[in-house]
Design a protein around this nucleic acid. Structure first.
Lengths: 366, 366
DNA sequence: GTGAAAGCGCTAACAA
DNA sequence: TTGTTAGCGCTTTCAC
């Protein structure tokens, strides 16, 4: 089983053909079209190949010739390492991997850190198409992907005209949540949201920044909330929104802390993800606030941990997002018109939302 | 921003050169060696490229010419989708992704289902090297990888002479656990282990199957246990070992059920992974067994959930495994001698292990 | 600073 | 069934 560390490519298809005294076509056929030559000849070719240490047709050369790389690229502007930590992202990856398995193609993860302007890796990726997942609309890696002459499908964001896209209807989805909270009677709400732009801002968010957010999923959710609450007389300008660049439970907790420190009168914390909401829950516990009696907390995504925690959230089929995107790219790619697929979401009311305490309760207890 | 679904490759480096009336070299230099031509000419080249819709040098053609694919392949004989579910595997992936990011190369996940004999995807992968993670020594995909003339490093298993390998010392590690249990006084133990071969066997494991297991990590752990317990007079042939093909918490629970149903006298359940142990814990609860008073349960890996559950386990640095493997392949690959890197492990005694109840306690209560 | 020549290793018409 | 001919699109000496 021993083998040298760096085996030099010894033999090529051509040298093998020469050795055998047959044409290159024949050798090629031995590997790619067994029916095109006699079993005996094929055996002889394969045996000699083995003897000469010929490892079979070079994949890169073959790709150049056939114009098929046999892989799809995945661009997500988040440290890959982190992506594996977010259950929602893992779900998407899982679905995409499933679609790739079905089609027998590789999944090429493109290295692209959020801060980096280094897009060479995108240009270097030998892939037949790209899946872009949750990337800001002004990201340089995205621009690099768009410059490549291969089909591309976007999951969630950005929304680019002419491109296939898979995702939930964020506007409608978040309005279900808003409706739920409004019905319960909440008017003093606060929001915890994810990164709105490439520039870091772990702080309260101005209306201007909300409006111009480069992550349109977040922007749309904020807009939806603003409009829904506006309709019942809440001035959105007075609603505190706290942003976090990193998407972790701890960041959710610190965001909740920052918001509640400044706005203790808030009766509901609306989070644009379950991860942030889980953090908010932890912070509520730390402050001795009972959920939902003293504070309502809601999330978005419907990850397993959220369900376990009884979180009121909007569930979206994350695995399905990845799988559908993969299939769009791999099997259903003969279309001329771009396809936008909207996946269903569902409001899941858990045990973390309830009517706010009335003023009387606040003064006299329940 | 609109763009056609399937953009045909319009321009090539050659056509661009022709259009500009310069040589191909010059165009190539404009992209790859900016210092080799005047800034003005470079601008002119790039501008014209943009105008003609030339997307820059084709990555596959470039790879063929430079003999560098800019990607490393990852082979794991597990549904990719599942790999994302196992925190230990995710840790490895994360570490590997980190190393790839550092080096600016892509990570190409090779589609290879455990049952499949379809190895074409391995041959088709345009990569500069492979990382093989937790694959049985007789897997056909592995053979395909070994036939490729590129450097390869193995994480955990199999152990192949001449190949780089990174992993813990399984024999020593499991003996720490055995020592702990022996010291506590356990002699009636049972074992839950992961898949031992490509053929499914969700059942008790014969000594023969233990000995001939194709996953040497599991084999080594079983051997270590057998030897350690043998030294204190335990006849390993009498020790029940239950195997599960799938590696999930639920499978751990069902394995524990199967074992305890048949061997209720067992005082300790040794699991070869935390996931299985977590399942065992759940099953113990279901049966009304208190852990560790009535039953000791131990794991292996040291994943976060295990720590949360207070599981007694052997911790291994999973992220480090991935990162080290990646670096071995990407930065430190000029060696001639294969390198075997053994990562440290640590016995972490939690709250799930305690001395077994004595016979008296069993009769008269503690 | 720029160009000419020579492949990288392979597959796909088409012809024999 | 097998061979001939033509590239796929690019980079890289090496001259000029």
């Amino acid at each position: 089983m021993a083998r040298p560390m760096r085996t030099r490519r010894q033999a090529t298809l051509a040298s093998l053909a020469a050795e055998l005294g047959v044409s290159r076509t024949t050798v090629s056929n031995a590997y790619n079209r067994p029916d095109q030559l006699s079993p005996e000849l094929r055996r002889r070719v394969l045996d000699t190949a083995h003897k000469l240490g010929y490892p079979g047709p070079d994949p890169v050369a073959r790709s150049l010739r056939t114009r098929k790389a046999g892989a799809v690229g995945l661009l997500l502007t988040e440290n890959l390492s982190y992506a594996f930590r977010d259950p929602a992202a893992v779900g998407v990856l899982e679905g995409l991997a499933l679609a790739c398995e079905e089609a027998g193609v590789g999944l090429h993860l493109v290295p692209a850190s959020p801060g980096s302007e280094e897009v060479a890796a995108v240009h270097r990726a030998g892939v037949d198409g790209f899946v872009v997942y949750s990337v800001p609309d002004d990201d340089p890696h995205l621009a690099a992907v768009l410059s490549r002459p291969v089909p591309t499908v976007v999951i969630d964001q950005p929304s680019i005209e002419g491109l296939d896209r898979v995702g939930p209807d964020d506007s409608t989805s978040i309005r279900k949540m808003a409706g739920h909270l409004i019905e319960l009677g909440h008017r003093q709400v606060g929001v915890l949201c994810m990164r709105l732009a490439r520039e870091r801002n772990d702080d309260f968010v101005s209306l201007e920044r909300q409006r111009s957010a480069h992550f349109h999923v977040q922007r749309t959710r904020l807009e939806g909330l603003a409009e829904a609450f506006g309709k019942v007389g809440v001035d959105w300008a007075s609603v505190p929104v706290v942003e976090r660049f990193e998407h972790t439970v701890d960041d959710g907790a610190s965001a909740a802390r920052q918001l509640l420190d400044a706005y203790p009168q808030v009766t509901a914390l609306i989070c644009t993800s379950d991860i942030l909401a889980l953090g908010a829950l932890a912070e509520a516990g730390r402050r001795g606030l009972r959920v939902p009696a003293d504070l309502t907390v809601t999330g978005f995504d419907g990850i397993a941990d959220a369900q376990r925690a009884g979180l009121t959230t909007v569930h979206q089929p994350v695995l399905e997002k990845g799988r559908v995107a993969g299939r769009l790219l791999l099997v259903d790619n003969e279309r001329l018109e771009p396809k936008v697929i909207t996946l269903p979401t569902e409001l899941r009311v858990g045990t973390t939302s309830a009517p706010p305490r009335t003023a009387e309760e606040l003064w006299f207890g329940p």
